[in-house]
Structure formats: structure tokens, C-alpha cells
Design a protein around this nucleic acid. Sequence first.
DNA 1: TAGATTGTTAATCGATTAACAATC
DNA 2: TAGATTGTTAATCGATTAACAATC
Lengths: 205, 205
Amino acid sequence: MIKKNIQRIIQYRMCLLRFQNLGFERIFSYTLAQEIGVSPEQVRKDFSQFHLRGNKKAGYLIQDILDQINELLHKEDIHKIIMAGLGNIGKALIQYKGFAKRNMQLVAGFDINPAKLKKNCRIPAFHPDKIPEVVKKEQVRIGIIAVPEQAAQEVCNIMVDAGIKGILNFAPVILKAPSDVVVQNISVCAELEALIYVTRKNEEK
Amino acid sequence: MIKKNIQRIIQYRMCLLRFQNLGFERIFSYTLAQEIGVSPEQVRKDFSQFHLRGNKKAGYLIQDILDQINELLHKEDIHKIIMAGLGNIGKALIQYKGFAKRNMQLVAGFDINPAKLKKNCRIPAFHPDKIPEVVKKEQVRIGIIAVPEQAAQEVCNIMVDAGIKGILNFAPVILKAPSDVVVQNISVCAELEALIYVTRKNEEK
DNA sequence: TAGATTGTTAATCGATTAACAATC
DNA sequence: TAGATTGTTAATCGATTAACAATC
């Protein structure tokens, strides 16, 4: 399970970048907290845990905190990612421009029908058999699984054997992977079902 | 914040359906736990909190538990959903077949350029101005935001004013909404950044 | 019956919040 | 200086885990 404090650090970063673009040089825990929707104590606690220091009275120097968060998140490197499944979600992610900005790079797509990916897409597409080859050659650590439910575990196994250490899984299955491989799930359906539940519950009050 | 126990209930449901399809009639907390990756005590505690009862020695009757979870999640109704933003993610979700199976229905898409949605898609597309009209007419409670960052808060405001009570937000911004509106965020980039962080950290060990 | 499993109560753990001293 | 803000320690809260009685 990924700790909540690092997830918030990632949010703080996003928010600090926005404030910096607006011309701010410094920020208070109070302001940042409000923007993210947490308490100022939470911000200070999180910063403290990652040794991000500010100035009493003068708050936090945005550039300074950003530099340190970037180091924490290894933003100095470009992180290569592979993508299994070139259906709706797969293609949408490949077209997404935001990865490059954040120093992440989709290096290849895989599908049992690699022709799904048209030539105009900037990344090459292969059959899943080629995953080990590409992972080794490109030194990839992170993989995205966006294949149909039935194929997800098999693709996961291939990725794990190839040396992938982190998997973002869009398939609606809980994947089995060794403990040194981190699996994170995204399920749009599950999120919607949870939303439906809580909104209905709120109405009852 | 959506409680973790209800998120697990949604996972249990998915898993129970799979076991049922495989021909099982009963299941033990131990089996279900293993499948989801939690402890059997967790399963029993969750079930207990939602008054899902089993049989000592004989475990849980799958059909019975499913019926009750379905009632909890209001699966007897069809839940209408609108979708703002017809870019990569928006279009991918519209093409996704899984919603209908789960009694969820995308009723309309919105974009400042509604022509983005080709005719062959089964749902109508409008300008965001029309959100209030559609929400009222169709009695929609849930909205998805998949517009660019800069437009997200504005679309959120329109949805909230129109009466939307739950929002699934794909834009990389924390939306401001009144406390009776539940906002759930999905950020592929943030998830990948978190994965990169933890996998790097694991390596250091 | 003996063994296995549930369901609940108590204990533990971790994360959030409160309090407050330090200090700019 | 006085006031505001950080950073840390202590207190609280909630969620998970352990223990175990009930019972099929």
C-alpha cells in the first residue's frame, strides 16, 4: 500500500508549481493546506517527515521546496514506462501529452493485435511476447496494464518476469504479484460505484 | 473522503461474482480475503459492519451476500452519469462497455466543441451550457470531469449548480465544491509518480 | 463429538489533530 | 517588541489486527 503522505507530497508539488507560475515566491502552510483540502498541521507534518524546511514567520520558499520534492521523486531522471493493451484506455493514455512534462515517457505499447496502434502514434507497438526484450533493452521499471480482465494476470506475470517493479492496473481484477512488485489499481467503475453509494447516503441524512 | 470499508465491499462484490461464475455457491472469509489481498478478519469485520451474515462452519452464501451488497449499492436502479470533456479520456470512457453491466449509464457528453463526438457514438453531445438542462431532465446525480486543467473548476461549478452530487475528476486540480458534493480524483500521473517513488525506495533496501 | 469458522470485543497500530515552545 | 508562523511532541481518533467465545 502506498503511503498517504507521499501521495500528498505529489499533490503539494502540483500545487506549488501552479503558485510559482502565478508569480509567488513563498507560501504558508495555511495557504497550501487550503488549496489541497487538508489542515495546515498536516502540511507541516508531511513537510517535516520529508525534511522540507521553511522559515518561521516567512513560510516556505516555493523553489526550494520544489527542488527538494523533485529530488525525492527522482525528477532528474526520465522514467520509462510500457503500456500493455491498446484498447480505449491504452490509446487515450498514449495520446496524453502530460507525461513528458513530468519526465515520464511511454516507450512502447503492447497488444495481441499490435496493428491497433496506427503509424502516426509516436511510440512503437509490439506483441506482448516482446515485453521482456523491450524491458531489458530500455531498462523499464514501470508498466501499465490496460488489457481485458481475462488477460490481465497473464500480462502481469510477463511483466514481473521481465523485471518490472511497479504496475498501474486498469483491469478490474486484483493481480497477484511478488511482494517486491508494487501494484496500484485504478478502477473507474469502482470509483463511480463508491460515489453513487456515498451520494445516496448523504441524501438520506 | 470515501471510507475504505465501502471500497472493499465493492471489491468483494466483484470477486464474489467471479466465484459465482465459476460455479461456487459458498465462500469462506479466508478465500475471499486471499483473493482481495486483505486478512480474513478484515473481511469478517467489513461484512459485520454492513450486516452481511454468514454461517459458522459453512461460510458465506455467495448469492445471499451479493443480493445484500447489490441493495447497499442500489444496484436495482440504473444510475445516470454525464461526462464533461470529449478528449482522449472522455472518448475512451464513452466507448467502454463495462458501465451498462454495472447498471450505470452515460447519458450525455459535453464539450466546448461537441462535434468532437462522432455520430456513431451512442450518446448525444452538447455544449457545457446545456448541463443544467440535461441534469434536470434526466435526473442525473453523478458527473465525470475529463476537461483540461484550466476548465475543470468552471465545469465543476456548472455541475454543482445543476444539482450534481458526486464528481469523478480526472483533471489534475483539486476542485472546490460544497461539502454536500463528493469529489473523487483520479490522476494517472500522480499514481505513476507514487509508483516511481516507492519502487525506487524498495530498490534502496 | 471435534474441528473449523463466524462474529464481536479488546488491543494495537498508524495517521491525523491539538498544543505549544521556538523563533523570525 | 509583538505577532505570526514553523516544527515537534503529545493526545486523539480511526482503522486494522488479535483473541476468543459462540456454534454449526
